[in-house]
Simulated scan of single mutants.
Amino acid sequence: MAHGARAVADSSPGTQVALHLAEGGDNGGTVWWFDNARSRGVPFDVIALSFYGYWHGTLDDLRYNVNSVANRYGKDLIVAETAYPFTLADSDGHANIIGSQSQLVSGFPASSQGQANWIRAVSDVLAGASNSRGRGLFYWEPAWIATRGNGWDPADPSSGNAWENQALFDDNGRALPAVRWG
Results as ranks from 00 to 15, higher is better:
residue 2 A to H: 12
residue 3 H to Y: 06
residue 5 A to Q: 03
residue 6 R to L: 14
residue 8 V to Y: 05
residue 9 A to H: 14
residue 12 S to W: 15
residue 14 G to Q: 15
residue 15 T to E: 10
residue 17 V to L: 07
residue 18 A to R: 09
residue 26 D to N: 14
residue 27 N to R: 10
residue 30 T to R: 02
residue 31 V to S: 09
residue 34 F to C: 06
residue 35 D to T: 06
residue 37 A to C: 10
residue 37 A to T: 04
residue 38 R to T: 15
residue 38 R to D: 11
residue 40 R to F: 08
residue 40 R to I: 05
residue 41 G to M: 06
residue 42 V to E: 10
residue 43 P to M: 09
residue 45 D to I: 01
residue 45 D to A: 08
residue 47 I to P: 01
residue 50 S to P: 11
residue 51 F to D: 06
residue 57 G to Q: 02
residue 58 T to G: 08
residue 58 T to H: 08
residue 60 D to L: 03
residue 61 D to C: 02
residue 62 L to A: 06
residue 64 Y to M: 05
residue 64 Y to C: 04
residue 65 N to E: 04
residue 69 V to W: 03
residue 73 Y to N: 00
residue 74 G to D: 00
residue 76 D to V: 07
residue 76 D to N: 13
residue 77 L to I: 12
residue 78 I to N: 00
residue 78 I to V: 14
residue 80 A to T: 13
residue 84 Y to D: 08
residue 87 T to C: 04
residue 91 S to W: 12
residue 91 S to C: 06
residue 93 G to W: 10
residue 94 H to Q: 09
residue 94 H to S: 10
residue 95 A to K: 12
residue 98 I to V: 15
residue 99 G to H: 07
residue 101 Q to N: 14
residue 105 V to F: 06
residue 105 V to W: 04
residue 107 G to D: 09
residue 109 P to A: 12
residue 109 P to E: 10
residue 112 S to N: 07
residue 113 Q to G: 02
residue 119 I to H: 12
residue 119 I to K: 07
residue 122 V to C: 03
residue 122 V to A: 00
residue 124 D to V: 08
residue 125 V to T: 01
residue 126 L to F: 00
residue 127 A to V: 01
residue 129 A to D: 00
residue 131 N to C: 00
residue 132 S to Q: 10
residue 132 S to I: 02
residue 134 G to M: 00
residue 138 F to P: 14
residue 138 F to I: 15
residue 138 F to D: 13
residue 141 E to I: 13
residue 142 P to Q: 09
residue 144 W to E: 09
residue 146 A to I: 05
residue 150 N to E: 07
residue 150 N to P: 05
residue 151 G to S: 06
residue 151 G to E: 08
residue 153 D to Y: 09
residue 155 A to D: 15
residue 156 D to S: 13
residue 159 S to G: 15
residue 160 G to Q: 08
residue 160 G to I: 08
residue 161 N to Q: 05
residue 162 A to C: 02
residue 165 N to W: 04
residue 167 A to G: 11
residue 170 D to S: 12
residue 173 G to L: 12
residue 174 R to P: 06
residue 175 A to Q: 11
residue 175 A to V: 03
residue 176 L to H: 09
residue 178 A to K: 03
residue 179 V to K: 02
residue 180 R to Q: 07
residue 180 R to S: 13
residue 180 R to E: 02
residue 182 G to F: 11
residue 182 G to L: 11
residue 182 G to W: 10
